[in-house]
């Protein structure tokens, strides 16, 4: 199993896809954090208060959408590139391949999420400095949010892998997922927060203590996301063992 996960990592690092997404995450995260500091700073919220920290640091999770895409590419990408046949010929037990891809996607999420979080800290610290303030990293809230953003990315990597395993058409999977996360979910949340907060994007926002709504607590949100990943992945594995590559 370790060698299969290693092979998946090797696949990631030997094309430009992962580094391109990583570059996008770094750029998006630093821009978002800088914009958040500027936005909050011009309002009446105190940047050094808990509310201010929340308003700035929750943006550290902005890159999770890219990790979601990476997870889809790790799984559905094998069908787009038509390499799936050879992958399954090398490892005929498909559930093992899917498990390796899930593990690789979650690990990549941890790596990318940690990097995005580091970029967020650096950008926020710099932006606070420019305003003559200092980023209050000593508070438990700051670290709760930052840890949450790493878990956010890790679980969204897993979510992408499970979606890409179920919907093997990469384009459909990516566009469909983005449409749900960016358009459908926020609409549902507006209509009924009681329902909307149990959906994946809202769970991700809960993990970074997004101040923009009545989200679930971090542990509940994390557990729910794990449940989503597990259910979709098990469904995909059950179907995959029956269908043709």
């Amino acid at each position: 199993m370790n060698s299969l996960i290693g092979a998946e990592f090797l696949k990631l690092w030997t094309t430009r896809t992962a580094s391109a997404l990583l570059g996008a995450i770094v750029v998006i995260t630093s821009l978002s954090v800088a914009a958040a500091v500027a936005g909050v700073g011009s309002g009446k919220l105190d940047l050094e208060s808990d509310e201010g920290i929340r308003a700035v640091l929750h943006v550290a999770g902005s890159g999770a959408l890219f990790v979601l895409m990476l997870g889809i590419i790790i799984t559905a990408g094998e069908y787009r590139q038509r390499t799936a046949v050879d992958t399954f010929l090398t490892t005929p037990r498909r559930s093992r391949v899917l498990a390796a891809k899930l593990a690789a996607s979650i690990s990549a999420g941890v790596v990318f999420g940690s990097l995005a979080t580091a970029v967020a800290i650096a950008t926020a610290a710099l932006a606070y400095n420019l305003k003559g303030l200092s980023l209050p990293l000593g508070t438990g809230l700051a670290w709760k949010i930052l840890l949450g953003s790493v878990i956010y990315a890790a679980l969204f990597g897993g979510l992408g892998a499970s979606i890409g395993s179920l919907i093997r058409n990469q384009i459909v999977a990516i566009i469909g997922t983005i449409a749900v996360v960016i358009i459908a979910e926020p609409m549902i949340f507006v209509i009924s927060p009681a329902v909307g907060r149990w959906l994946p994007a809202a769970l991700g926002r809960a993990l970074v203590s997004d101040p923009g709504g009545d989200f679930l607590s971090q542990p509940v949100a994390g557990a729910m996301l794990i449940l989503y990943v597990a259910v979709i992945m098990l469904a995909a594995a059950a179907i995959e063992s029956r269908r043709d590559a």
Partner: peptide, 22 residues
């Protein structure tokens, strides 16, 4: 056999070797 267009031939083989424990 189909190869990922963006992966080098050597790396393609390294992936296969890794997965097959070679």
């Amino acid at each position: 056999m189909v190869f990922h267009w963006g992966r080098s031939g050597g790396n393609h083989l390294r992936v296969v070797a890794r997965a097959a424990g070679i």
